[in-house]
Computed example of a mutant assay.
Amino acid sequence: MTAVLPQSRALASINPVSKLAAALLLAAVLVLSIDWVSATVALALELVLFCFAGVPLRTLVIRTLPIWLAAPVAGLTIALYGEPSGATYFQWLFMHVSDGSLALALATTVRILAIGLPGVVLFITIDPTDLADGLAQVARLPSRFVLGALAGLRLVGLFIEDWRSLELARRARGVGDKGRIRRLFGQAFALLVLSIRRGSKLATAMEARGFGGPTERTWARESRVGAQDLALVLMGAAIAAAAVTVSVATGSWNFIGAR
């Protein structure tokens, strides 16, 4: 089973497909330009909306921590190895810090935050089964693909338990106390074999129950979209439009196709 954050009142009635659409819409617009203005405007508006999302602050910080750590690392890499232009501040071997690389590093850092944070906030409140229902009924994706992906996602928790069981079994036999690197590869191979066998059995069981049949499927729970879903998508579009408008108005818009 996968751990899902209990849904807050602000996000409980929103269809998972609408959350996915809002996140993809915002990301699609932000990747069109490499500038810090559009990403900063989008990030500022997103942080305001996070206050009304109903997600506990501690949970929000913990779940988004990888993004907060990855964004500065990516920015530092761009600052050291990005395309140099303007005044040079530091140069050594392949590293070249200049005005252009620093501006590109800032734009990259803020853009990663602006794209990644709303995706995490929206997806930590999504149950995999609800998402599968929405993708099949609202987005009209093939049921065979949706159910296969759902089954695979549900097995992630089992893989973690299998890894722990393999580790305990090896230690019980006295072969898991030394050589961590060698043990890592051995356990990974054993988990791969176990996952292939389990996947084959699961596929056979699903086929036997008619999951791969050509007839149209029925669903136990109906997935609907309403006014809240439209409001979320419109908010995502409004944030994207505001970011582009401010960026163009300030002359900072830097379309990636023009590079």
Rank of each mutant, 00 (worst) to 15 (best):
D130Q: 13
S101H: 07
I115C: 14
V61I: 15
Q91A: 15
S165I: 10
A203C: 10
H96A: 03
E46D: 08
S165H: 09
G86N: 07
A53D: 11
L202D: 02
D130F: 05
I34N: 10
L76D: 06
R197L: 13
V31K: 08
A3S: 08
P142N: 09
D162P: 05
S33P: 02
L168R: 15
W253M: 02
S13F: 05
L122E: 06
F185M: 08
A74E: 07
G148C: 01
A53W: 09
I67Y: 06
A242P: 04
R144K: 14
G134F: 11
S101A: 14
S18F: 08
A258S: 09
T2D: 07
F123Y: 14
A114L: 05
Q91N: 05
R180V: 06
I115P: 01
I239F: 03
V48D: 06
L57F: 06
K178V: 04
L131G: 04
R173M: 12
A22N: 04
D133P: 01
M235R: 11
C51P: 00
I126T: 14
A87N: 12
A188H: 00
A87Q: 15
A227H: 10
R182I: 02
E222N: 01
S13K: 14
L57N: 05
R259M: 12
V120W: 02
R154Y: 15
E222M: 01
A71G: 11
L60Q: 08
L232S: 02
V121P: 03
D130N: 12
W163C: 03
A70G: 08
G119T: 12
S247H: 03
A169G: 08
L191D: 02
L30M: 09
L25H: 03
P128M: 10
G251M: 04
L25M: 13
R154G: 15
E167D: 15
C51T: 12
A136K: 06
V225M: 14
L158N: 13
R209F: 13
A42F: 00
I256E: 06
L20R: 06
V31T: 13
I160T: 11
A151M: 07
L117G: 00
P142F: 02
P128I: 11
K201M: 12
G148E: 01
I126Q: 08
I62G: 03
G186P: 01
L202Q: 04
E216Y: 07
L168D: 11
L191A: 13
L76F: 12
R171P: 06
F159D: 05
D99P: 05
A114C: 09
D35W: 00
D133M: 04
A169Y: 09
L147T: 11
Q137H: 05
W36N: 00
V55A: 07
Y89C: 07
D177S: 09
E46H: 12
V110T: 05
A107E: 03
V156L: 12
A241S: 11
L191R: 01
F255T: 03
R63D: 12
W163L: 12
